[in-house]
Write a protein that binds this DNA or RNA. Structure first.
Lengths: 106, 106
DNA sequence: AAAATAATTAGCCGAACCGCTAAGGAGGGC
DNA sequence: GCCCTCCTTAGCGGTTCGGCTAATTATTTT
């Protein structure tokens, strides 16, 4: 029920927009998750899960969960290659939700 | 210890910047608090506490606490006039912390 | 097949969050 | 003085969050 298919709602669906803001700003609320996004940006938008996890003090499962929160918010996507998982920064989503909200303040 | 005086740290203090991001993004994580900022923006950046509280479904004490979180994050400031409290939108802070962080993603 | 690697899922636990009601201060009107 | 209004503070209770370890799945290697 958490993950909704891309085309399930129209682009201007107001309720969906509020849900998106909720998910995105909740995801950005934690320093580790913001840091993950910065790492992705700094390393070409596409980083292996292990390379992310090794950069953080917390345990790998904890990082995995942070990545899941980011994924549910649409801020990253995943590409599986064999036994490796690459996380990809969804920059457009970040700007379309957080950026647009901020831009409303002029 | 929560509220730090304005000039206590230098502008480029990296630690202070991280603390500021923590406080600001944590404040933005809740829909009601984002809504409060939108209401402030829509009504001339300066609104009486009661006028804010009356716009929300939740109880007045709950709104007061949301306002306190926003104040601790520096996103609003308070001006007391008699027995009324006016909350003022700190737009610069919003842009300087959240906006700048987002801008780092190009 | 067995072992090593890559990563997730499951489950526990303390801390923080967010709602409420009730009580408290502080200013203004009578 | 008294009371009413405005708003905050105090404290309780359920839910969520975020850390960990242990167990599991899936893939590659030997």
């Amino acid at each position: 029920m958490k993950r909704r298919e891309k085309g399930a709602t129209r682009a201007r669906d107001g309720l969906a927009e509020l849900e998106a803001q909720d998910a995105v700003f909740a995801a950005l609320a934690h320093a580790s998750r913001r840091h993950i996004l910065v790492v992705l940006h700094a390393r070409g938008d596409r980083v292996k899960a292990g390379d992310i996890a090794s950069r953080f003090a917390c345990s790998w499962p904890t990082t995995t969960r942070h990545l899941r929160v980011l994924e549910d918010a649409g801020l990253v996507s995943v590409e599986q290659e064999g036994r490796e998982r690459f996380y990809v920064l969804e920059r457009e989503r970040l700007h379309a939700v957080a950026g647009d909200w901020l831009a409303g303040f002029g």
